[in-house]
Structure formats: structure tokens, C-alpha cells
Design a protein around this nucleic acid. Structure first.
Lengths: 335, 335
DNA sequence: TGTCTGGTGGTTACCGGTAACTTTCGGGGT
DNA sequence: ACCCCGAAAGTTACCGGTAACCACCAGACA
């Protein structure tokens, strides 16, 4: 007799209905071949007659397996992450894993909190955006002995699996594309300034210095980037450096916003001002002119994460490793 | 002696270290006032010395409470949903709930699958996008006796809590804004054509018919909307109906894409063609000219969902109810 | 006929917490 | 001196599954 009559249908209810023990019902669900066909049918019909819903907590507790993986992403509204998510999801859900999505808002403190939460949920792996974490987060991860993927950026010292691209190198390459086309006074416009934005900016600086040019035309803000912000910041830059020839924006949103501002000011792009963004989102191909950008292999990152993780979850022991998936420069028509 | 030496630190380990029983440690964590201050301190230091991470499954199983709520959203890359998420998250996390995000990809079958999954995770409430669900999903929800929020749209027959806006009415209102300004040959451009897009379109039809005008200039596709698609589809519409004066797009992405296409064709907006979108995303204020749009109170929807849900979770019994949070027409400069 | 084997299904204990009830103990009121 | 009370900590049983091992049985085979 149950202490709390929770009203919820359990394995025991199904078992009673069919006249077997609950372990048999459990087997019918998880290892159907181990139960005779006739019995299996009776169990199945009892299950949907009574409306049984398994209790994940009980299963996870008893088996020590949660069949779930946490994917932390900095922003829900940025399609960069949604494409990664799609790849991860597809690969892992086929293998029977549930992907739990967490939202860090670009904060490593929030990331730490989420790592803690998801470890207590018993996730079997964690996928983190970026390679910088709080000390406490690193300690948690080390103790958890759970596969960890760090993504988007690359690091010399991966915690475990690292899949991404070299953001600094991409920043250098895009800047060089400006320089090759004869632009000299190339500015940099950055928002949010998370670690990846910083790396891109550092790439711009490196390339400018190497070419013996000034890397001073640079405007950044900690605010989250948006189209509007791109326009406003471009305005400030033009005021401060009226001789600006080109602007490398740390992402496509800013670049599109900057392009709109140019349209408003009747500044021809790229005639009067050249622009480039970063990521290769849909919008860069749709604007007039299309925006130059660094195309990042987001979908592929998701796929690769899924496949490396599955290998790891299925027992292949790997040493910490870094995988560089590269990028492509697309010139579009704004440069 | 544990059967499986999972390596994981449990309450028992902390208890042994401190010399108390595990229930005391459990209390120190959940009801600190019930444990003496001195002991509490010793327990706390043991906890972070040994790196204890609670086992959520065990807690949920024993207490029958998961402290989590599922929020299903159709698309991760659409900021409409990310703003709702922000409101929900903020309200619920303060009250100690964890918000689990699920991604339906606009499919009610996938929604059904996720409802099943999250019920088995023992969520204490479900927040669903839209008011249409599969029959099986409805049966699951009915049996689960868990608060359910249906959002974005309104319905006459809410399952439980319904918070949103009248999409049809909004479609009518935007169309009337076109008509008031003298536009007559107003077309409709729709993508994805999920239920909300259909309602908006129906609103457009209603308003056109009421004004005695033709509602034939309409182009839709089941493909997901994107900037590029907006441009391409506008191209098709112009080819098919060269006399088009205005286009109401079922969302801002399409409208922006259509605007870009106009720029490419040197079609003045709104001089040669008027445009409007739907949702009031950031981009509508950034383009040149800014886009007319229906501003939906997304953040507020999130906040209201959180507050109604908390009331419900804290025991206030409510009958099924519908709450209309309205919308605003913003004319921008494209109309 | 006896033994072995594989296919089925059952027994038992346990996962790591928590609810509900009980025990212990020191102090205040009368 | 007695009783009562509340605070602090412990006991016990249980949440709903699953792992590991065991029992039974029919047919294959010697």
C-alpha cells in the first residue's frame, strides 16, 4: 500500500494489471527481446491503457545513467548557437541521449552555476561555449569525471575535447582581406566583448601592426550587440575618425547595423566605406550589398561535437585534444 | 559498503566526516534553521572540502518534487522566444525553479515527444508555444495534472493558463493601417505557415474582404523564414503581380529581406512599395527606413507567465483562463 | 534417462535522498 | 520537585526504478 497515493501510474501498476512482476515490465521497455512476444504485447497494451509515464529520476538513480547531456549556450537568440545545437541534437538524440539546453548569457559565473545544476542532474557530458571558465567550474568538472567539450574557440590546454576554430587567425585573415584590397585606415567595431570578440579584435590588431598600420580606430562596448547598436557605434566612429575607410565588425549583427547606417547617411558601401562582419549568418547574403564576413562552420562543429562525444561516451578513451575546423572568408559585396 | 563504488560523494560521506547522520546534512542544506549554527558550519565546510554535488534524481524521487519547469520553444534562433524565455526564467528561477528548455522546431509531433520526455523528468509545469497540440499530447497533459501554460496565441478553450495576444486581430489591425494610408493592392507574404502565421494571414484576408478588396496577392511557403527567403519571395510576387502597392509580411525577417530586395531593385520604400513585418524585433528599428511592424509584448508575456504559474504552483487553484496582452502597431517609415 | 543450454521470468538488494515520526535534553513555569 | 515544551538530531520506511543473480522449463544431445 503506497504511503502517498500520488495518482501516478508506475511500473507496479502495469505489472499488477498484466500479472507479472515489475522487472518484467521494465525489461519489456528496455530490452524487448528478452520478453516473449505475447507477453510483450499484453504489457504494451496495458501501458497505453493506463497511460504509464516512466519516472526518469527513479531510472537514473537506479542505473546510474541519465541518458542526458548538457549543452550550454551563451545566447538563445543568436543563430550561431542554434546551428551548433542542431548538429549536436541530431547526433546525440539518435543515440538515445536527451540534450538539455542551458543559457549562460555570456557569463562564466552563470556557466558555473549551470555546470553545478546539470551535474546534479547527472548529465553524462557537458558541452561548453568557450575555453574560459571559473576556477570553481574547472574543479567541479575535474571531479565529475564526465566528458567535457569546449567549443567555438581553440585552446592549447583543453580540459578534454575541444572543437572550434582559431578566432584570432580568422580576425587576422579578414583584416588581411581588407588590406589586400588596398584599404589602409581599417577600424574595428566590437560589442559584448566576450572572449571570442577579444580574440577577433586581437587578430585585427596583429594584422594591422604587421602591415605597419595604426590599430587605433577601434570602438568597443560591453553592451550586447544588436543591429541598432551597430548603427549607433558606426556613427560615433565616423565622427571621431572621419577618415575611416573600412570597418571590421566583430559580428554580423553589428555589420548589418553599420550597413543600415551607411544607407541612411547615403554613404556608398564599399565605395565610401567598406564593411565586414563575422559568422556568415543568413543576413550577410541578403543585404544590399551582401556583407563580407568570416563564415564559420557552425553546423559542422555541432556534428563533430556529437561524433567525438559519442565515441567518448561509448568508451573510447581519448586524451585531451583540439580540433580546428577552420573558416572561410567571404567577400560578398561590401569590401 | 556500497555495491558500486561510483566515486561520487554523497550525503552519507559528508555525514560520516562530520559525525552525524545524513538526514542532518540534508536538513542543513534545505532547512538551515533547523540545525544548530555550529554544526551547520562544520557541515558546510565538509561539503566543500569533499566537493559534494547533490543528486537531483534522488531528491526528486524521494520528495516527489523536481523544482523544474519545461519551456518548449519552436525555434532557438528566433528572438521572439528568447525574450519570453528571459521573462519566464527570471521569474521562476527566483522562486527556486530550474527552467528546462525544449526545442520543438515548430512541430506538434516533436512537441508531443518533448511533453512525454519532460513529464518523465517530473517537471512541475509545462509552458507550450501555441494552442494546438496532438490528441495524444492533450491526453498526456490531462493525466499529468500539472499546470500548463499555452502562450503566444489565444484560445477559447484553454487547457489551463493561456497568455498571449490575438494574432488574427493583429493581422487585421496591421492591414487596416495599410488601408488607412491609402494602399489598396496589399499583398501578404508568409513563410513556415505555422498556426500563428495562418492566423495573421487570416486577419489580412478579413480586413481586405471587409474593405471590399481582393485578397489574392498572397504568397506562402512551408519553408522556414529567413532574410534571403523574404527577398526571393518578394521577387516572385512582383513578377506575378506587378501592380503590387504594399506587402504585409508574416514576420520581421521576411519584411527585412523584402526591404533588402527593394533596395537592390532601387524600389523606393514606401514610395514604390510599402512594407510591414510582425513582432517588432530589433532589426525593424535599425533598417533604412525603419520597418512598420506589429510590436508584440514578448518580455511581458514571459513575466506574466512566470507570475501566473507561480501563483498556480503555490496552490492558488484557478480555472482555465485566457489573458490577452495586446499588441501595438508601429508605423516606422516603410508605410 | 540424464545433462546441458538458452529463453523467460522472478527475487533481492540497493541507488541517494526525504517525509514523518520519535528520542533526547535543557530550561521555564508553578 | 514535577511537568511540559521546543529545539536538535536520529530512526525507519519508502520513492520507483534497475543490476545481478537465481529458478524454472522445454528441447537438444549424448
Amino acid at each position: 500500500m503506497p504511503r502517498r497515493s500520488s495518482g501516478r501510474v508506475t511500473l507496479q501498476h502495469i505489472a499488477d494489471r498484466v500479472g507479472v512482476t515489475k522487472i518484467t515490465v521494465s525489461r519489456a521497455l528496455r530490452e524487448p527481446h528478452r520478453v516473449s512476444a505475447a507477453l510483450r504485447l499484453r504489457i504494451e497494451s496495458a501501458i497505453d491503457e493506463l497511460g504509464y509515464i516512466p519516472n526518469h529520476s527513479a531510472g537514473a538513480l537506479a542505473s546510474g545513467r541519465s541518458h542526458s547531456v548538457a549543452l550550454l549556450i551563451p545566447s538563445l537568440s543568436n543563430s550561431v548557437f542554434s546551428e551548433i545545437q542542431r548538429g549536436v541534437q541530431e547526433g546525440l538524440s539518435e543515440a538515445g541521449y536527451q540534450v538539455l539546453i542551458g543559457h549562460t548569457g555570456y557569463s562564466i559565473l552563470e556557466e558555473e552555476r549551470l555546470i553545478d545544476t546539470y551535474l546534479s542532474y547527472g548529465v553524462e557530458a557537458l558541452i561548453l561555449p568557450g575555453t574560459r571558465h571559473t576556477d570553481h567550474a574547472c574543479r567541479l568538472l575535474a571531479r565529475a569525471r564526465v566528458p567535457v567539450v569546449e567549443t567555438l574557440e581553440l585552446t592549447e590546454t583543453p580540459l578534454d575535447i575541444n572543437v572550434g576554430l582559431d578566432q584570432h587567425e580568422a580576425g587576422v585573415a579578414m583584416t588581411q582581406a581588407f588590406l589586400e584590397r588596398g584599404y589602409r585606415r581599417v577600424g574595428f567595431l566590437g560589442a559584448r566583448m566576450d572572449h571570442r570578440a577579444q580574440l577577433r579584435m586581437a587578430g585585427w590588431e596583429t594584422a594591422m601592426r604587421q602591415a605597419g598600420l595604426s590599430a587605433q580606430r577601434c570602438l568597443t562596448t560591453p553592451h550586447p550587440s544588436s543591429y541598432r547598436l551597430g548603427g549607433e557605434m558606426l556613427g560615433s566612429m565616423l565622427e571621431r575618425w572621419p577618415d575611416l575607410e573600412a570597418v571590421f565588425c566583430c559580428n554580423d549583427d553589428l555589420a548589418a547595423g553599420a550597413l543600415f547606417e551607411c544607407q541612411r547617411r547615403r554613404l556608398e558601401v564599399p565605395g565610401a566605406l567598406a564593411l565586414a562582419g563575422f559568422n556568415g549568418l543568413d543576413i550577410t547574403e541578403a543585404t544590399a550589398p551582401p556583407l563580407a564576413t568570416v563564415v564559420t562552420p557552425r553546423r559542422r562543429i555541432g556534428d563533430v561535437i556529437a561524433s567525438r562525444l559519442l565515441a567518448r561516451l561509448q568508451g573510447t578513451p581519448l586524451r585531451p585534444s583540439s580540433e580546428n575546423l577552420g573558416f572561410q572568408i567571404r567577400i560578398g559585396g561590401s569590401l
